[in-house]
Design a protein around this nucleic acid. Structure first.
Lengths: 189, 189
DNA sequence: GGATACATTTGCATTATGCAACTATTTAGC
DNA sequence: GCTAAATAGTTGCATAATGCAAATGTATCC
């Protein structure tokens, strides 16, 4: 795993794409905000997965589902979908996995038996506690070089970005592409 | 696709996990920084994918690869790996897909013929321009409710988080779990 | 009671991912 | 120059994730 000196010696001397990402400039993947967020989040999630995967046999969806159940004991599968950004099939399979591993149990709801009412078992809580402890430490490590003031600002920004992203997702790409945008900002009158 | 009123009527009245995420408190998935970043980024990436997938037949890795090639014409596959966070197999297949679709071509390097020297074709540039235009609009839409000042702060913070996440990934979970942490902050001497 | 709506599950096809083994090429040692 | 080791990239195959149609069991409405 050596990390440097991998420049292609035959690379032609083109522009290397260092221009700013305004309209007309070529998009820079590494500078694209969603990609930057993605990279940070998946690195951390990968490390956490490398822990709970081999140790408890949990898939990513199963871990996410477990965390949601832990927060809201007695949730239905449908609620897990919304809270975890998973589809109903993924949740069904994740719950099945958790039950098979002995980490969760479901009892039919008393007033409406279509709902599942899922809860963590004793061993489920133990596993969850251990994983979430590492998760918290990872988060702490991640933000260790960010000041509390900055963190507060970040919190507010992420709340806005979360809202905006939800809106974008709901409206789809058409509304964004067809909206009057910053492209071709009238170079001459 | 109705969006509300999905509360499980049989949900028991447990604690709903609203306590802060300090040591000892149960982890809140929705508040966990990596998950917040993940959600924002995947929502936007999903919308972009819903555009270029059906329209150009590109997979996610193929789009990422295309963007990297566009930025650095003549890259080798190995460089794409590093720049795009993809493994060598994914890159190999992505390039294959791009070539088959007529979006890219590779010519063997002149001084070292092990390297590929990949470039976009004419149609590849056209497709890239169209996709990246939408990508830029998505980013603009995403940050539309964030002030320029905040954006600047965000930039700095993300740079730090990116460094920190790279460090975490490189060291693995053991170093984070075994590090002296904020857990059990000595209740008694 | 029968139609309808809802929550969830299952089966199956498609796609992605991980990894070993392979080819081709270059470099280093002798 | 010849062999061994290193490097870049590809391919095949097993396994896992994903998407979606259809089915099941339940509740509600008329």
């Amino acid at each position: 795993m050596q990390l440097f000196s991998n420049q292609n010696p035959d690379r032609p001397e083109h522009e290397t794409g260092q221009e700013k990402a305004g309209p007309g400039a070529t998009l820079q993947l590494e500078g694209w905000l969603p990609y930057r967020l993605f990279r940070i989040s998946t690195r951390v999630a990968d490390v956490l997965n490398a822990f709970y995967g081999p140790k408890f046999g949990l898939s990513r969806s199963a871990w996410r589902t477990m965390a949601i159940i832990a927060n809201r004991p007695g949730v239905s599968a449908k609620e897990i979908c919304q809270a975890g950004g998973l589809d109903q099939f993924a949740v069904s399979r994740a719950v099945k996995q958790l039950v098979e591993l002995g980490f969760a149990q479901r009892q039919a709801g008393r007033s409406d038996r279509r709902y599942a009412a899922i809860e963590l078992s004793e061993t489920g809580w133990t596993a969850f506690t251990e994983i979430s402890d590492l998760a918290k430490r990872l988060e702490t490590e991640l933000v260790s070089s960010v000041s509390p003031d900055e963190l507060e600002v970040l919190n507010g920004i992420l709340a806005k970005l979360d809202d905006a992203s939800a809106g974008i997702l709901a409206r789809g790409w058409r509304s964004v592409r067809d909206a009057p945008g910053p492209q071709d900002p009238k170079p001459e009158t």
